[in-house]
Design a protein around this nucleic acid. Structure first.
Lengths: 211, 211
DNA sequence: TGCCGGTGTAAGTAAGCGCTTACATCGTTT
DNA sequence: AAACGATGTAAGCGCTTACTTACACCGGCA
């Protein structure tokens, strides 16, 4: 009566594998990579520690597998065409809303990246840089298209993308990562609207603004 | 020939104390709190490990002393009056420049805060929240004053402060913390100018913008 | 039926950790 | 000259860590 508990085997990526990954994601994000022990991960996942090492050759490989399995950017990219057809400020608000949703969704991933990127220079940095570059390029293409349509001024679309991202990301970081909720009011929609109003006024073409 | 090396005693905060603090600051920021051992800190500081524990009762207290000894905000605040007398966009650029200088100066401190804030909820979070709130309020007061002078539109100055900070901080974070230098060009001044141009256009009063 | 893959328990390894103790040394102060 | 305070060396304590080995079990499949 000491053996397995009847969990079905479903191939290499069965539920045990997944359970370990998800549990480790949560623990790494709250306690840090060094702060979460393999004993603790196994215990919280409801498995034996030795089982963890049968699925992952080392703790480090477990971390790497966790950090390389998120790909939320395609969904963000796919939304750009729809946003292009909205009125400009409305488009900005909905893009910011989508970005914020996505960031909240991958909150643990972001937290680990931010905390661990110093320690493990090559692997994590490459993944994170790829994510950021891709994100910036996505938003830059949005601004570039609107510039060609004459809606926007003649700023550099890549810097605009960075500014847009900076505003939204820092809001996310302070509210979600640093637990600084309700800084002014618990109204996320209001914050986004205020931010995007400033950003929209700063980027529309002068002639469009005067209309 | 095994004893002290002739370092002068200068009171409770002598050079040994400082050396430990500075070395630990650097190591905590690159390897994380858990990743940097007291042995390693002592070795890099050129002292015996036991000396470290004579200066600091525990590793945790060492971290706390490191994180509570920075106070760069007064300098940032003191610059606001001068900025108020500059043309608006020029003022924004110089404020952003000052903020960026300050962030670079306390880079290690910020890195530790970002990485460790999850693990040690109360102490660090309190210090960091105080820092951020104070920073936001400083910039909000700048916008509030210019609104009263009629230079700016009628946006909420606190959200504007957050947007301003977000743009600058994310630029700093990506360039300095994530080592993503030369994203487009190695010209920090150009980036700030582009950012502040957008921000200025987004916040000036309509009548002032049309002039 | 018998094997096999995945899991469990139990025990243990070598290394590193934060931190302590005991004692020697050296410069300064009294 | 003697005491003192800050530092050094050396050893080690108790504990945790990532990771391993050996063996038992159990369900599904040939």
């Amino acid at each position: 009566m000491t053996g397995g508990k009847g969990i079905k085997s479903l191939g290499p990526y069965d539920s045990t594998h997944e359970r370990i990954l998800e549990t480790a994601l949560g623990l790494f994000s709250t306690k840090g990579y060094q702060g979460a022990s393999t004993r603790e991960i196994a215990q919280e996942a409801g498995i034996a520690e030795v089982t963890l090492f049968r699925h992952f050759p080392s703790k480090e490989k477990l971390l790497q597998e966790i950090l390389s399995r998120f790909s939320v950017l395609p969904a963000l990219k796919a939304y750009i065409p729809a946003a292009l057809e909205l009125p400009y400020e409305e488009a900005l608000v909905s893009l910011a809303d989508h970005l914020l949703d996505t960031l909240v969704q991958i909150k643990d991933w972001v937290r680990i990246m931010q905390a661990e990127v110093q320690r493990s220079p090559e692997k994590l940095l490459t993944v994170f840089h790829g994510f950021i570059d891709d994100l910036f390029e996505t938003y830059a293409s949005f601004f570039r298209e609107l510039q060609q349509r004459g809606t926007l001024g003649d700023f550099d679309p890549e810097y605009a993308a960075r500014a847009f991202h900076g505003i939204v990301f820092c809001y996310f970081s302070i509210e979600e990562l640093l637990h600084r909720k309700r800084y002014k009011a618990n109204d996320r929609g209001e914050a986004i609207r205020q931010f995007m109003r400033i950003f929209a006024l700063g980027t529309v073409s002068r002639t469009a603004a005067e209309a």
